[in-house]
Nucleic acid binder design. Structure first.
Lengths: 227, 227, 227, 227
DNA sequence: TATGAATGAGGCTTCATTCAT
DNA sequence: AATGAATGAAGCCTCATTCAT
């Protein structure tokens, strides 16, 4: 109700009466959109409240302040990603296939999680201050590293992988193009056109990037997609 | 010699006269810092003015408004990167060395241009709207693509490079880890510790990433750093 | 009796509770003064706020922005005039007397509504943009036209009025001197002195103007005040 | 050059070298437009300067400040009107025709001098303060009063005019509808539609208003346009 | 649990004007 | 006669937040 001259558009509430969890979820969903869209300082509590099924006052009631809300949003998207990683099962695959699977899944997961990407960008703009303060950090992302380590160990045991293959480094590499592909779409397109973002070209990039990783990790792997 | 009277540059102006270009440069330098540090909405015109050698009023005099200033800052960092790319000379090197050089130089350039990285992140948060509006876009970054194309052409001519080597795709790949390495340092560190950001580890990552690119592009290249 | 406890009006609210409507009314009253005195661009929100019993912030809270406030002020004065017109009852008078009554009442209403006059002048400076945007326009001023039409119809039925008597044209004529008399007092006085604005002379002008209208409308009417 | 971010559109000067009078005229012409369009506080010195063939600094050089410029503009439009009144010659006409001519000429003059109308409105918003301060006041508008007086005198001498016909009052009446017709066009249209502003209807209004004046002033005049 | 009303602080921007040559 | 650069003051408005029930 702030700004906008006492609009007559009174809040139309849906009929679910008082369900605190639902209200909180609703707030979080809207806030995720807004923070992802405009950043921490760019997002606007009034706007978030307006799009919510409840009132501005409730945001403060449940989340304390803007930064508190932002933190919960951040934790939410990290939690989502982690859950999607947990679903990935490569235990039964032989090392090369498992690695290929991990790369492709990571690429796709990033492509399908634009909110996560944007919020991570935003958090990096803020030097990771809020993530570091959060208590989700300890349990963050071990999952994917564990998987990579397990695959690397098996690969090396079977003399398939080079000894220099390191789970953390691989994660860094795989994340880099998976993340950059989404995060820098706007400026990359502005500079070089949108050609690489077509569906077809994205598939090619995924294939080539995967083959590149395999060529670096797997002894004698021929990156056939580069021929 | 070389230690005589202060350089004769900037002769034309008598000494008591204000120097508009210097004022503008000063504003731009401070604004670059501030926008890089806090983003478009997070940066504060009062704060920028305070750190400046001139007044808030002059910012509006020379740049119109906050967005105008931000645009010039953006153009400035893109221009800087481009100029650094223009200095790179790989024409005399044989293809494999040239490509190695390009990858390493790109990695280093990003590592040494944190303002550029942050402003590009910020611009992506804004969906590239300001970059697209700018008239520097057309002449953006052709330089690096041209160089990659020339090297790829030579590499393929000499049967050294695989036919699938594509300049734009390579640029996308090389940029991805070069950029991500800097842009996501904060969250990556929060999740996985700061080990990979040590000077030593950064050198290793650069080497391995370079070798990985070469393994993908160059026929029969052995990524020895991965052993 | 009649001197008992303070009037029971405004019962519903407990006494410690703020009264938003009163706050809005207070803002509107002050704003009407200020806009009438200085125009849209000339009026000053800080000044309005200062004279108010509340704060500048509340102006924005209730009215959105300066233009929003101005619009409400405009609607307010138009509403007042309309209400005063609605009170005018000429249904029982014979046509000539009724018309005389309407002219005199219009003249007096304008003389007694300097805020209305000034705000209409100001709105005309703005080409009527805000009035046109307002949704009060449709129901504007039908009242006075209806009354004139009814009187004209009766007058013509009784062969008292000339056939050329037209309600809208008459309203235009009657309004013109009623309005101009107030709106252009300053410049008219500067050019020709203040003599016509004395109480006595104003009465004469009203009488002569009324007689003039009647002489035009009523068959054989002798404008005796002009003798 | 203020605001608008250092546009590259440098002033293109016409080739007349230094002609102070022409420069002043040019400034006055633009300023008349701008003050008429936006009022005293609404007009903008930067904007005036921009539309001028010279610079903002020259406005201050020649006119001192914004109010000084406004005063000269005001004097300019009053001067124009007066000059047009001086051209009006009714000395040779018989009283009734002369009066008819004066009314019609006044009506037309107002219709054709929108800048004058708007500036007079604006000056009234400012309570005539600037007009009163100006030294053109003394010689203001005597001309038209003189003419009306002369015609009234002749009319009464010939027993054509009623004794109550007074030049100043007539001028007040004639001005009122002539002025109001233009000044309140915007709000009148918003309230009652634009029908009376068609070319045809304007001619009718002029005729009827003239006849109305004559019916009031001239013994036994039949306002035939009202039949 | 919920809320309409209220707000201090500070944000961005514009203005008429003057400086220094 | 002319001017590009500079500016203090003040304008409008928005923000995250709290009050009082």
């Amino acid at each position: 109700m702030d700004g906008g001259a006492q609009s007559p558009a009174k809040k139309r509430k849906t009929s679910w009466k008082k369900d605190p969890e639902a209200v909180k979820e609703n707030i979080l969903a809207i806030a995720t959109e807004e923070f992802a869209a405009h950043g921490l300082s760019g997002a606007n509590i009034n706007e978030i409240a307006r799009k919510t099924s409840t009132s501005k006052r409730m945001i403060y009631y449940y989340f304390g302040d803007k930064e508190g809300l932002y933190c919960k949003v951040l934790e939410g998207v990290y939690g989502s990603l982690r859950r999607s990683e947990d679903l990935l099962d490569v235990a039964g695959l032989e090392p090369v296939e498992a690695l290929r699977r991990l790369v492709e899944a990571t690429f796709d997961a990033h492509a399908n999680a634009p909110h996560f990407i944007r919020l991570v960008m935003i958090e990096n703009i803020h030097n990771g201050d809020y993530l570091r303060k959060s208590d989700i950090v300890p349990k963050l992302n071990r999952s994917i590293i564990d998987k990579l380590e397990e695959v690397c160990a098996r690969g090396k045991d079977q003399r398939l992988f080079r000894e220099g293959a390191d789970a953390l480094e691989l994660h860094w590499l795989i994340s880099s193009f998976s993340f950059y592909n989404v995060s820098n779409k706007a400026t990359f397109s502005a500079s070089f056109g949108t050609s690489i973002y077509s569906k077809v070209h994205q598939a090619i990039l995924k294939k080539k990037a995967t083959d590149m990783i395999l060529a670096a990790v797997v002894n004698g792997h021929e990156p056939s997609s580069w021929n």
